[in-house]
């Protein structure tokens, strides 16, 4: 079996001395893991960073097996552009780990790849935090939950097309999406929300909370 697809690298784990098992969010094959031979080598390390956009070729003798990936970097944005910004880097990590842990493997999720790619591109722009909250609300909706205000947590204006945005609305939005992630998305999996997401919220609050 073989297919080619565009993908985003989400997570990489060492396998043996030279290889890695990479988890990718692909455009047409959903969340998919595979072995990358030589993935621990100098040539592949820059490509195998969370958030990197790649062209992936997956091969396997049988469809249900792990299979191997051949990866090539695609041009466009580069995650190295975020290395100097702790909060954006935390947002990137949070998004990657949320996708890798919340989505079922090998199930096509229409629009998820495009939305996550758009987020990765937006992370180096101006309204990146609003984009992040919109992306989280989209993820929650994609997983089948009706995203709406909860008690004293209304849906921020920028999430319902009423403009606005800014630090306070972003923090309100993160509280609301955090509620859905904790009480619905991860509750049904009996797992806590990944710590990387909390680290991002804390980093954002510490960096910009005073402005709100």
């Amino acid at each position: 079996m073989e297919w080619r697809d565009e993908a985003l690298v989400l997570a990489v784990r060492p396998y043996g001395d030279t290889s890695v098992i990479a988890t990718l969010l692909t455009q047409e094959h959903g969340l998919h893991a595979g072995l990358v031979r030589g993935g621990q080598g100098r040539r592949m390390q820059p490509i195998l960073q969370p958030g990197m956009r790649v062209a992936a070729t997956w091969r396997s003798m049988q469809a249900e097996r792990l299979g191997t990936f051949a990866l090539e970097a695609l041009s466009g944005y580069h995650v190295a552009a975020l290395f100097g910004d702790s909060v954006r880097l935390a947002a990137l990590q949070s998004a990657c780990v949320l996708v890798a842990t919340a989505l079922p493997e090998r199930e096509i999720q229409p629009g998820m790849f495009e939305a996550t790619l758009a987020l990765m591109e937006a992370l180096s722009g101006d309204a990146w935090a609003e984009s992040y909250v919109m992306w989280e609300s989209g993820l929650i909706g994609l997983l089948g939950y009706a995203f709406e205000g909860q008690g004293e947590m209304p849906v921020p204006g920028f999430l319902c097309g009423k403009g606005g945005g800014g630090t306070k609305e972003v923090l309100d939005g993160l509280r609301l999406t955090g509620y859905f992630l904790e009480h619905h998305v991860f509750a049904v999996m009996h797992k806590p929300v990944p710590a990387a997401r909390q680290r991002f919220v804390e980093a954002y609050d510490a960096a910009f909370g005073q402005e709100g």
């Binding site: 995650v79 702790s86 510490a206």
Partner: peptide, 28 residues
């Protein structure tokens, strides 16, 4: 110079904020 390595660097820089030291990192 990886996403995990640089995330850790930023985290440590925050923890060392109150120490009276210059915090630097290797050039890329």
């Amino acid at each position: 110079a990886t996403v995990d390595g640089q995330t850790t660097s930023h985290f440590l820089a925050g923890k060392l904020k109150d120490c009276k030291v210059v915090v630097s990192r290797l050039a890329h």
